[in-house]
Amino acid sequence: MARWEPGTAARLQQAAMELFTSQGFERTTAAEIAAACGVTERTFFRHFTDKRDVLFRGQDEFERVFVDALDTVSPGVTPMKAVMTALRGGASWFDDERRPHSRMRQGVIDANPPLQERERHKLAGLADTLAGALRARGVPEPAATLAAQTGTTVFGVAFGQWIADGETRPLDAIADDVLRELTALTGEA
């Protein structure tokens, strides 16, 4: 087996995605993922707590991108506009280079109901984090929770469109379109 090399976690993630896609998440073992990279199963577990972690690692970083963008918003901006600024900032994390990986990852998640539940939990965590950041800015309840959950829904719908086959628009542009659709539905400008 190979000794430790830089980039092992990224190689393990790529191998896992390929195996999950070709043989299914449930039928893929950590040992197979490790073997595909020429490392031991123990090395896999040094990087990931389990094979689900391959798909969901980085939640803190994911949320931090949104909160950092929210932190740039001037005081007095409406909660929904503040959240949309956060979503545009978060969208910057999802550049065109990330789109193929995101499509593959979502395909694995869509094929596995327990992973779908974990993905919903991840988005709920983002909504909770955004609501907390809004409250810290002085936004009262229920406005903080409503804005955060609405913004997270906009993100989820936009993300689904962004990873659709043939889609080439940037995620922030799609999120803006989804928000326009939502405001048309609610009758707000």
Rank of each mutant, 00 (worst) to 15 (best):
R99Y: 12
D110S: 11
R98W: 15
F159Q: 07
A148Q: 05
I109D: 05
Q116A: 15
T129Q: 01
Q116T: 15
D110G: 11
P140A: 06
D110R: 09
A158I: 10
E167P: 06
E97N: 12
A158G: 14
R118E: 14
P140T: 01
N112A: 09
G151V: 13
V108L: 00
D96I: 00
L130F: 00
G151R: 10
G125H: 01
G156V: 02
R98Q: 15
F159A: 08
W93R: 12
R98N: 09
V139M: 00
A148R: 00
Q149M: 06
R137G: 05
H101N: 07
Q149I: 03
A127Q: 03
V157C: 02
A148V: 04
R118Y: 08
A124L: 07
G90I: 13
V157N: 02
T152M: 02
G132V: 02
N112Q: 13
L134E: 09
P170A: 15
Q149P: 04
F159W: 10
N112G: 02
D95N: 13
P113N: 08
V108G: 00
R135V: 04
K122E: 08
T129N: 00
E97F: 07
D95H: 14
V157L: 05
E97D: 12
S92N: 06
T152H: 01
T145Y: 04
F155S: 05
L171E: 14
R169K: 15
A127E: 02
A133R: 12
T150K: 12
G138N: 03
I163N: 09
A143I: 01
D165I: 07
Q149Y: 13
W162D: 02
A158Q: 06
T129I: 05
A133E: 10
V139P: 00
P142H: 02
W162R: 05
H101R: 14
G156C: 03
P114F: 00
T150F: 01
G107P: 10
D128P: 00
Q149D: 07
A147W: 01
R105Q: 15
G138P: 03
L115E: 11
D110Q: 10
H121N: 12
G166S: 05
R103I: 14
V157M: 03
R120T: 06
N112L: 03
N112E: 13
A131G: 05
F94E: 00
D95F: 10
L123C: 08
A136W: 06
